[in-house]
Write a protein that binds this DNA or RNA. Structure first.
Lengths: 341, 341
DNA sequence: CTGAAAGCGCTTACAG
DNA sequence: CTGAAAGCGCTTACAG
């Protein structure tokens, strides 16, 4: 039988209340008494039943997810995943609230985080914007003992407890490596479509991509980055124009969103041969394009995994428990049309 | 406030015991009474607190994992993951027992499964062997109400509740597609190293591989399969000999285990150019070979994910709860040296 | 067929 | 500084 608080109380010769005080590090116990209880705990190899404790406390974890009201497929999918978690959460003693903020707006994000400072939820997950003000509130939240997880986009060199997202430099490197191999070392020109070079994720992916190409495929030349602002319309125009100007574009790396525009441009183009295309995020449109052979490979981050991981980590941090690193690592999925889920 | 059994009892005008009987579908309740309770339940939107129920029942889930005592790195890793789960399990009301069986021995597997029929654990996970006797015991277990999950290797057309493993045909197809692309449509010869064509997983991978190549890369020719029995020594000999005979081997697909031997053979070989190599399972040796450029891509199944998934599913089945399909799908990871975890 | 009471392992006022 | 008692939401003998 697993030892319980009753066993501890009996052995230490104290009451349950005192055992509880020691167990939870509450003050008001003489150190001799505390010692007796601690001895009993270790001698019994006691490990407490969290579920029973939560029941007794009527504890429910209240978490807040702050998401940008961005309207690309990936962010919409992320929203859906969080909403799914909200629905399931009732069964798991968690209450999850979603707060939408305007995208790319550090001020708005900071404002919301500040209100949470007063509200004191059991944990906060948010899609970070890499700015000093954000780092500053993050620190205040951490100092207030509120666990923080960054989601999809990280806040490096900050006090956040965990990052639930992919390594974007590695993602870019992977794209570069695939591109180089698929082009099989031929002399070729490659275009890059990004959202904005102001966004850290995009900068990192480009960095990884360029490095991988430069190191291993010197025959592959990268054109100046097209910044489509993650907008399908703008992306379409830019890609169409690039293809018109450069008939010899052999590959395109789309490292941001707005892939619907890219796909339209590719479908309308009729150059001598179709360029090799590597894009990010598996959505309805990239999936269809992959099946049709318009896109050759998709690098993906599993939004569902990211959300579930963020919740698990927040709960663990709230309980002061360790996290299982292997379970929480978000991998860079590579999808060809052959291994589509 | 979430409604509780007390609320139901009050509204239905019955005792807690009766509420409990209805809630758990136990007999001995007049249908009028049952009706009143059911009405109260739906009108309140009651959803029961599983943790509290488990506490009251002192319920602990006892699961059994049956693993082949195979000594390749993947199976050793799988063992380790299960052992890790055993260690953590105490905190989660689960007790997991590991039973080792001789590999490739349907009789031994059946014998163990039969003992479990009497023992009645809350769930069983096992690496299946595709044989009629196995299917037969599986059915008896299912009929006895014991949830079954197949792990890594499936038992198709059987009564198993769930399969925690990858789609091996898709894995083979993915390997074929990568091979074809990496060879970029040049006229070339490719060797395949398997463990044994008697193993279903290996047959399926080969099938997927051959199909993908035949459909999209008619210039790529596949040599007769080498069966290395997942043995490093034998695999090394076979690969070395194949390379000697066929100086023009441009690619090797290693779809089974025994990769240490393959790697040794590749390192010792000094043909005009290194063949392109795609292997399965990320282990210490394939990881090193990937970094060194001896292997070009590794397809992987995450043993940790498989084990955690199997446990989650067994628990859900034991509780009659639904599983989250997206969370339990085991993907085919593709690793290049650029996205190694 | 139905109910009162005790208990699962922990926590929380409250009293002393 | 310490303890007795009640309670979290559910289940389980036991009695009737």
């Amino acid at each position: 039988m697993k030892p319980t608080v009753h066993d501890i109380a009996k052995i230490a010769g104290v009451s349950l209340a005192t055992v509880d005080r020691v167990l939870n590090g509450r003050p008001g116990v003489r150190s001799v008494t505390r010692g007796k209880v601690e001895d009993a705990i270790t001698s019994l190899g006691y490990v407490r039943d969290l579920a029973a404790a939560n029941l007794a406390k009527s504890r429910t974890y209240s978490f807040v997810f702050i998401l940008p009201a961005n309207d690309n497929s990936f962010m919409i999918g992320l929203h859906e995943e969080v909403r799914g978690a909200v629905v399931r959460s009732s069964a798991e003693r968690t209450v999850i609230r979603i707060i939408d903020v305007p995208p790319f707006d550090p001020g708005a994000l900071v404002a919301v985080l500040e209100t949470l400072l007063a509200e004191r939820p059991a944990g906060v997950a948010f899609v970070a914007i890499d700015a000093p003000e954000v780092r500053a509130v993050a620190r205040r939240l951490t100092e207030a003992g509120i666990p923080i997880v960054t989601l999809v986009s990280d806040l490096p060199d900050s006090s956040r407890d965990h990052y639930a997202g992919i390594d974007n430099i590695a993602a870019g490197r992977t794209a570069g490596s695939l591109m180089g191999r698929f082009l099989s070392g031929r002399e070729s020109t490659v275009a890059v479509l990004a959202g904005s070079m102001l966004v850290r994720d995009h900068r990192e992916r480009l960095e990884g991509f360029s490095t991988a190409i430069a190191q291993a495929y010197p025959n592959v030349h990268i054109l100046p980055v097209l910044e489509g602002r993650d907008d399908p319309g703008l992306s379409e125009t830019m890609v169409a124009e690039a293809l018109r100007r450069n008939a010899d574009i052999a590959g395109i790396y789309s490292l941001g969103a707005g892939n619907r525009g890219l796909i339209r441009a590719l479908q309308k183009a009729h150059g001598p041969r179709r360029p090799l295309v590597i894009a990010h995020e598996l959505t309805a449109s990239t999936r269809a394009a992959l099946s049709d052979g318009v896109i050759d490979a998709v690098l993906n981050q599993d939004a569902g995994h990211e959300v579930r991981s963020a919740i698990r980590v927040l709960k663990a941090k709230a309980d002061g428990l360790p996290v299982l690193a292997a379970q929480e690592r978000i991998r860079i999925d590579i999808f060809l049309k052959d291994n589509l889920p």
